[in-house]
């Protein structure tokens, strides 16, 4: 169901002006921290928390509760889930607070398992496999192009290893024979240089994203509000 606020209605006009005032309220931070900016911050936290909680109730808890009332026999997993959810409330009352450990234990146990499974099958194995590529120019068709691709593959592999070595380079435990430590140190320094490039790329991307958000609000103020269109 898609709600469309009527064009030109009082709700829309009021909304546009409220949105514009809030936009200016947040931008007022440019002149320094002030009560208007703080007000917008608190308002934002309140609305976002209320919005997320309302969705959690509407889309997760209410449907399951309704199902449980409608058909208690077949909805026993929902009954267990909601009962455990209720047990979480006991955390607020000290004599019964140990009971809250059960749902927390389940939540953390399942969460840890899902994270491990995902990291292993979704990142660790495929990314290591993707790093193990041929560095022979013949495999890329030979010639100058083959050499270029082979060089790329070798750089990719070496840089990945260097970044991993950077963790060891920072680690406190630096045992092992001196030549090995020297190689690890060199690789670590190389890894840090690669991480600097990644950070630079992230900075460039972040600049574009921040700018896009600001540009969107200027679009709203210039064309949305003054042009009389909705958001």
């Amino acid at each position: 169901m898609n709600v469309v606020l009527p064009e030109g209605s009082l709700a829309q006009t009021l909304g546009l002006w409220v949105a514009a005032l809030l936009t200016l309220g947040v931008l007022s931070y440019l002149v320094g921290d002030n009560p208007v900016f703080r007000l917008t911050q608190y308002l934002f936290v309140g609305v976002s928390a209320g919005y997320a909680a309302a969705l959690a109730w509407t889309y997760v808890l209410a449907p399951r509760l309704a199902e449980l009332i409608r058909d208690p026999g077949s909805a026993w997993p929902q009954a267990i889930a909601l009962a455990l959810g209720a047990l979480m409330l006991t955390r607020a009352w000290k004599p019964l607070s140990p009971l809250a450990r059960l749902p927390l234990a389940l939540l953390l146990g399942v969460g840890a398992a899902v994270a491990i499974g995902g990291a292993l099958r979704g990142t660790l194995v495929p990314q290591v496999a993707a790093s193990m590529v041929s560095v022979a120019p013949v495999d890329y068709g030979g010639g100058l192009r083959g050499w270029a691709y082979a060089l790329d593959a070798a750089t990719l592999l070496a840089a990945t290893i260097a970044v991993l070595a950077a963790y060891q380079y920072h680690a406190a435990d630096r045992t092992g024979p001196a030549p090995l430590r020297r190689v690890a140190s060199l690789l670590g320094k190389g890894g840090r240089a690669i991480i600097t490039i990644v950070m630079a790329a992230l900075l460039a991307g972040a600049a574009l994203s921040f700018y896009s958000a600001l540009r969107g609000q200027f679009d709203f103020l210039l064309f949305g509000l003054l042009g009389g269109r909705g958001l």
Binding site: L202, G205, A206, L208, S209, S212
Partner: peptide, 10 residues
Amino acid sequence: TAASEPLLAP
């Protein structure tokens, strides 16, 4: 977003 693109490049 441009900010998240490098994270997903691999």
